[in-house]
């Protein structure tokens, strides 16, 4: 109990004193998860909207794949990306500029996109599917192009799309398996909050671990609070 309380106090001190090691880790986490969420949104929102609104052969199969992707264990994603990017893997030997190297921030972002994108696609698909078909028909009747109708439908489904983004962010901010495997937890380079918590706990360095844990919880709370505020403004 004493360890926990002293850990919390020390953790808060580290946070508010602007401890460079702690803030460096927070910065890498924000960079990796922020970029992964942005890419997942750019990929997932249009794809989810198209899957939710259009009918074509093979749609059910794609939906089933998306739902499977929503439950992908991060450690399996980490393993798959590791095998793809390693020097003996499928993509690693190609030595192309667009293929990131293992143990880099870019590799971690790619892994997190694979985790978050299915969640963004799946939730967006469900959100746009709940917009009334009458409303979609009305929008087209008012002269919307296909793209304008898609935009209007996404706007009407914005609360659900917001939930999709929160779900995606939650899944990558808190995951440890994929970033550990493809990032390698390198100090000053690929160490993020979750991998640092794991390392510092193993070392018995509870202050830093608890400090990072508090930051992680605080960030999750702030994100959800902002989302709740935004949802409230829609009403």
């Amino acid at each position: 109990m004493e360890t926990i309380s002293s850990g919390i106090i020390q953790g808060l001190k580290l946070f508010f004193s602007g401890d460079p090691a702690l803030w460096q880790i927070i910065g890498v986490s924000a960079q990796v998860s922020g970029a992964a969420l942005l890419l997942s949104a750019l990929l997932g929102i249009p794809l989810g909207a198209v899957l939710g609104l259009t009918r074509f052969p093979g749609r059910r199969m794609i939906q089933a794949l998306v739902y499977t992707g929503m439950g992908l264990p991060p450690v399996v994603v980490g393993l798959a990306v590791y095998l793809l990017l390693s020097n003996n893997g499928l993509l690693g030997p190609l030595q192309q500029a667009w293929i990131p190297k293992l143990f880099t921030v870019e590799a971690m972002i790619d892994a997190q996109v694979i985790i978050a994108a299915p969640l963004v696609i799946g939730y967006t698909m469900s959100a746009v599917g709940e917009v009334s078909p009458n409303l979609r028909l009305q929008v087209r009747s008012l002269g919307a192009t296909r793209l304008q109708a898609l935009g209007a439908t996404l706007w009407e489904a914005r609360r659900g799309v917001l939930v999709a983004l929160i779900g995606g962010l939650g899944s990558i901010l808190s995951e440890v398996g994929a970033v550990m495997m493809v990032g390698g937890n390198i100090d000053g380079s690929t160490r993020v909050m979750t991998t640092a918590i794991l390392l510092e706990t193993r070392r018995g360095n509870f202050e830093l671990a608890i400090g990072l844990g508090i930051v992680l919880l605080g960030m999750a709370f702030l994100i959800n609070l902002s989302a709740a505020q935004l949802q409230g403004k829609g009403h």
């Binding site: 009334s132 009458n134 409303l135 028909l137 009305q138 929008v139 009747s141 008012l142 002269g143 919307a144 192009t145 304008q148 209007a152 706007w155 009407e156 829609g234």
Partner: peptide, 29 residues
């Protein structure tokens, strides 16, 4: 398409204000 418009039995209004609904079709154009 933009010379023809339907008003359905269910008004199917967009979320937002009355003014935003009236401006919607104009903004599409």
């Amino acid at each position: 398409r933009r010379t023809v418009t339907t008003v359905f039995q269910n008004p199917a209004l967009l979320s937002g204000s009355v003014t935003a609904n009236l401006l919607f079709g104009l903004r599409l154009r």
